Amino acid sequence: MKTLLNIIWVVLSGFWLFVGYMIAAAIMCILIVTIPWGIAAARIGVYSLWPFGKEVVDRPTAGVGSAIGNVIWVLLAGWWIALGHVVSGVALCVTIIGIPFGWANFKMVPIALLPLGKQIVDG
């Protein structure tokens, strides 16, 4: 069932969200100083491509550095990507079949805003 949900997800919104994350990751890696944010964006981009069967948990070793990094992330790219999740979620919720996928988009907004200090694990 997870595979079927992931295939439908990729077709409906996952691919374009993945592309957005990868663009953000490439820009962050080009700027050299922001490479840690680029790595986080790439990690979450892969998660946004195939999300069902995985979950996001807090990393117990995350500290003040992650909190400061998240503030910088929100200013640089996080709010754009979170907005993409919201717009995609609203568009998917228009149909009954798309509601679970819209809900999955809404569940990705917190990690799009605050990616540092999070870990993606198999659920």
Results as ranks from 00 to 15, higher is better:
residue 1 M to E: 11
residue 2 K to E: 09
residue 4 L to E: 14
residue 6 N to I: 10
residue 8 I to K: 02
residue 9 W to R: 11
residue 12 L to I: 13
residue 13 S to Q: 11
residue 13 S to P: 12
residue 13 S to E: 07
residue 13 S to N: 09
residue 13 S to G: 12
residue 14 G to A: 01
residue 17 L to P: 00
residue 17 L to V: 09
residue 17 L to F: 06
residue 17 L to S: 05
residue 18 F to V: 05
residue 19 V to R: 05
residue 19 V to F: 09
residue 20 G to W: 01
residue 24 A to N: 14
residue 26 A to D: 02
residue 28 M to K: 05
residue 29 C to P: 08
residue 30 I to F: 10
residue 32 I to C: 11
residue 33 V to M: 06
residue 34 T to G: 00
residue 35 I to Q: 15
residue 35 I to N: 07
residue 36 P to E: 04
residue 36 P to L: 02
residue 37 W to L: 03
residue 40 A to F: 00
residue 43 R to M: 10
residue 44 I to Q: 04
residue 44 I to W: 01
residue 45 G to E: 00
residue 45 G to C: 13
residue 45 G to S: 04
residue 45 G to A: 08
residue 46 V to R: 15
residue 46 V to W: 06
residue 46 V to C: 07
residue 46 V to Y: 06
residue 47 Y to T: 06
residue 47 Y to G: 01
residue 47 Y to S: 00
residue 50 W to C: 04
residue 51 P to T: 05
residue 51 P to C: 04
residue 52 F to I: 12
residue 54 K to C: 01
residue 55 E to I: 07
residue 56 V to M: 04
residue 57 V to T: 13
residue 58 D to I: 15
residue 58 D to W: 07
residue 59 R to H: 09
residue 60 P to F: 10
residue 60 P to T: 02
residue 60 P to D: 08
residue 62 A to N: 13
residue 63 G to I: 10
residue 63 G to P: 02
residue 66 S to F: 03
residue 67 A to Y: 15
residue 67 A to C: 14
residue 67 A to S: 14
residue 67 A to T: 11
residue 68 I to G: 13
residue 69 G to E: 13
residue 71 V to N: 14
residue 71 V to E: 11
residue 72 I to G: 07
residue 73 W to D: 03
residue 73 W to I: 03
residue 74 V to R: 09
residue 75 L to A: 15
residue 75 L to C: 13
residue 75 L to I: 10
residue 76 L to C: 15
residue 76 L to E: 05
residue 77 A to C: 02
residue 77 A to T: 12
residue 78 G to C: 05
residue 78 G to I: 02
residue 79 W to K: 12
residue 79 W to S: 15
residue 80 W to M: 02
residue 81 I to R: 01
residue 82 A to C: 03
residue 83 L to Q: 11
residue 87 V to H: 14
residue 89 G to V: 10
residue 91 A to Q: 10
residue 93 C to R: 08
residue 93 C to P: 12
residue 95 T to D: 04
residue 96 I to N: 01
residue 97 I to C: 10
residue 99 I to D: 10
residue 105 N to G: 08
residue 105 N to W: 10
residue 105 N to Y: 13
residue 105 N to E: 15
residue 106 F to G: 01
residue 110 P to D: 10
residue 110 P to K: 12
residue 111 I to P: 05
residue 111 I to Y: 01
residue 111 I to E: 00
residue 114 L to V: 11
residue 115 P to A: 06
residue 116 L to Q: 09
residue 118 K to M: 05
residue 119 Q to V: 00
residue 119 Q to Y: 00
residue 120 I to P: 02
residue 123 G to E: 07
